[in-house]
C-alpha cells in the first residue's frame, strides 16, 4: 500500500464510520433545530471521507465508493472509538463529538503541513469545515459542563480515542447494514 494510503485510510475510515454512526441521529435528535445542525455535520464527515478516499483511489486505481463499501470488515482501519453505537445517548454522543474534534484538529494540523501538496490542500479545506464542528462541539460542551452524565461519558470515552486494531462487535453489524444494498446485486450501479 502506498504511503498516502497508509496515511489517509485510517482518517477516511474514521470520518466515514463516525459519519455513519452520527447519521443514526437523523430524525430523532433531541430537538428539531439540533437535528438539522447535526445532520450537516454528518454530511460534512461523509464528504471528508469521500474526498480522502478519492485521493487514495486515484493512486490505487479504484474509486472512493469501492474503498468505502467493498472492503472486508477487517480491512477498515477506523478506531474502535468511532465504531461505538451511541444512539440514543446524547451525552455520550456529544462527549465523543467533543473528544473527536479535539483529536481531529491535531491530526489535521499535521496533514496541513504535509509535503504532499494534494494532501495539504485537502486538509486545509476539511479544516475550514471542521471549524464549524468544533464550534458546535464547544457550544454543547459548555452547555452540558455541569451535567453528571456528560462528565461520566467524557471519563468513559477519553481513554478510547485512538484505540485501533481489532474491531468492536458493533462494527460487524454496522458493516453488514451499510453494505447490504450494495452487496445485494453483484457489480451493480446504484
Amino acid at each position: 500500500m502506498s504511503e498516502r494510503a497508509q496515511l489517509l485510510l485510517p482518517i477516511a475510515d474514521d470520518e466515514l464510520v463516525l459519519g455513519w454512526r452520527n447519521s443514526e441521529w437523523t430524525g430523532i435528535a433531541p430537538f428539531l433545530e439540533e437535528d438539522v445542525a447535526f445532520s450537516s455535520i454528518v454530511q460534512n464527515e461523509i464528504g471528508h471521507a469521500r474526498a480522502l478516499y478519492q485521493l487514495v483511489a486515484d493512486e490505487l486505481g479504484t474509486t472512493a465508493d469501492a474503498l468505502a463499501f467493498d472492503r472486508s470488515p477487517d480491512e477498515y482501519q477506523c478506531s474502535r472509538f468511532v465504531e461505538l453505537r451511541l444512539v440514543p445517548d446524547w451525552a455520550r454522543t456529544i462527549a465523543r463529538h467533543w473528544l473527536y474534534e479535539e483529536a481531529d484538529e491535531k491530526r489535521l494540523e499535521a496533514l496541513k503541513a504535509s509535503d504532499d501538496p494534494e494532501v495539504a490542500g485537502l486538509a486545509a479545506k476539511i479544516d475550514r469545515e471542521e471549524a464549524y464542528h468544533r464550534m458546535h462541539a464547544q457550544m454543547w460542551n459548555e452547555r452540558l459542563a455541569e451535567e453528571p452524565r456528560y462528565l461520566e461519558a467524557l471519563e468513559e470515552l477519553r481513554p478510547l480515542v485512538d484505540g485501533r486494531g481489532d474491531h468492536t462487535r458493533e462494527f460487524a453489524a454496522l458493516w453488514e447494514e451499510m453494505t447490504m444494498v450494495r452487496r445485494s446485486v453483484a457489480g451493480a450501479t446504484w
Partner: peptide, 20 residues
C-alpha cells in the same frame, strides 16, 4: 424563525436552516 437556547445556538441553527 428558529428556536434556540441562546444566541450562539441560534446562530448555528440559523446557518443550517437558512444557508446550508
Amino acid at each position: 424563525s428558529v428556536g434556540a437556547p441562546d444566541a450562539a445556538f441560534a446562530e448555528a441553527y440559523a446557518r443550517e436552516q437558512y444557508g446550508r
